[in-house]
Computed example of a mutant assay.
Amino acid sequence: MAPFVCHDGVMDLTPYVDNLRQELAVAADAGGDEARALAERLTAPLESATRLTLLNALSAAMGEVTRELAPGSVDVRLRGLDPEFVVTPPPAPEPFQEAQTSATAPAAPTPPPPPADADDGAMARINFRLPAHLKGRAENAAAAEGLSVNAWLVRAVSTALDGGERATPPGRGKDSGGRGFTGWVR
């Protein structure tokens, strides 16, 4: 089988589909002329099913990678017939800025405790259809905040469901003046 082929983040599935086609032909040869003819008739319809199965496997694998990279992510997108991988690294930690004196610097706000039903690490996958004009706006908003679209949408849904309590991470609000700590804890 050909090695992993990926150019500019796009993986070429053709070598894997071709390999499966060859394996099917070899297996059909053992069954004689009738089996060989059946394998040839099935090859074309099975190509799209094979690609879909490979895409599902890659998507599940990238879900696992994303869980390990959190808050970074790896998204799998379809470009033509082939998957494209979009890697969003975790945001760089902000440098620690020591306060001038404890009397002149207000204490950093303590973030509220997470709700009882906070993220337990379990992930669920949904298909989400968004009008093109909203998709572009969501991509721009995510890019402006240094987030993947997926991470931005997760935060937007969380904010909507939590009544705005989690809208702004500590140290990023208007009143924080850049003071405080930000980051992620596992």
Rank of each mutant, 00 (worst) to 15 (best):
M123E: 05
P45F: 05
A44K: 12
P91Q: 08
A143E: 13
D119V: 05
T104R: 06
L55D: 03
V149Y: 02
D82K: 02
P114S: 00
A39K: 03
A116E: 14
T50Q: 03
P106M: 05
A27I: 00
E34A: 15
S48K: 12
R125S: 14
L55H: 08
E94K: 09
L24E: 02
N19F: 14
V10W: 04
P131E: 10
A49M: 10
A107G: 11
E47R: 12
A57Y: 07
G146V: 04
L42N: 04
N19E: 15
E139M: 07
P71F: 00
A28R: 01
A118R: 06
A44D: 15
N140M: 11
P15A: 01
S59N: 13
F96R: 12
E64P: 01
P112T: 07
L81R: 15
P106S: 11
A30I: 13
G121V: 05
G9H: 05
A49C: 12
A60F: 07
V10P: 02
N140S: 14
E64T: 10
L13Y: 01
E98P: 06
A35T: 02
P93Y: 08
R79L: 14
F128H: 05
E40D: 14
E98Y: 09
A138T: 04
E94M: 08
M123N: 05
T101C: 12
D8L: 09
W152Y: 13
E98T: 11
